[in-house]
Simulated assay, not measured.
Amino acid sequence: MNALTEGNTAGDFVAWEEDGFYSRDTGTIGAGNDYEPGSVLGKITASGKLVYWDPAAVDGSETVVAVLRTPAAAADADVPNAVLMKRHCRLKRHGLIFGPGVTTQAQRDQAVAELEALGLLAR
Score class of each variant (00 low, 15 high):
Ala66Gly: 10
Ala74Asn: 10
Gly119Lys: 07
Asp59Arg: 00
Ala56Asn: 15
Arg93Phe: 02
Gly42Arg: 05
Ala31Ile: 13
Ile44Trp: 03
Ala66Glu: 03
Gln105Phe: 01
Val112His: 01
Thr5Ala: 10
Leu4Tyr: 10
Glu62Met: 08
Arg90Glu: 15
Glu62Ile: 03
Ala106Asn: 04
Leu120Pro: 03
Pro80Tyr: 07
Val58Ile: 13
Val64Gln: 02
Glu116Leu: 11
Val67Ser: 05
Ala122Tyr: 04
Leu50Val: 06
Tyr52Val: 01
Leu50Glu: 03
Ala111His: 02
Arg90Pro: 00
Pro100Gly: 15
Val64Asn: 01
Asn33Glu: 13
Asp109Ala: 01
His88Ser: 14
Ser39Cys: 02
Ala56Val: 05
Thr45Asp: 08
Gly48Trp: 04
Thr103His: 12
Leu96Ile: 08
Asp34Trp: 11
Asp76Gln: 15
Trp16Glu: 13
Thr104Gly: 12
Trp53Cys: 11
Lys86Asp: 09
Leu41Ser: 10
Gly42Gln: 04
Val65Cys: 10
Lys86Phe: 13
Leu118Trp: 05
Val67Cys: 12
Ala106Pro: 10
Asn33Cys: 07
Thr70Leu: 00
Ala82Asp: 07
Lys92His: 06
Ala106Cys: 06
Lys86Leu: 09
Arg87Glu: 13
Lys43Glu: 14
Gly11Cys: 08
Arg93Tyr: 08
Ser61Asn: 10
Gly95Leu: 06
Lys86Ile: 14
His94Leu: 07
Ile44Ala: 13
Met85Val: 15
Arg93Thr: 08
Leu120Trp: 02
Asn2Arg: 09
Ile97Lys: 14
Leu68Ala: 05
Ala113His: 04
Pro100Ser: 13
Gly119Glu: 01
Glu114Phe: 01
Val58Asp: 15
Val65Phe: 08
Tyr22Pro: 00
Thr5Pro: 03
Leu96Thr: 08
Gln105Trp: 03
Asp12Arg: 07
Asp12Ala: 01
Thr26Asn: 02
Phe21Glu: 12
Phe21His: 11
Ala66Val: 08
Arg90Lys: 14
Asn33Arg: 05
Leu41His: 04
Glu18Arg: 11
Ala15Cys: 05
Gly38Gln: 02
Ala77Ser: 14
Val83Ile: 12
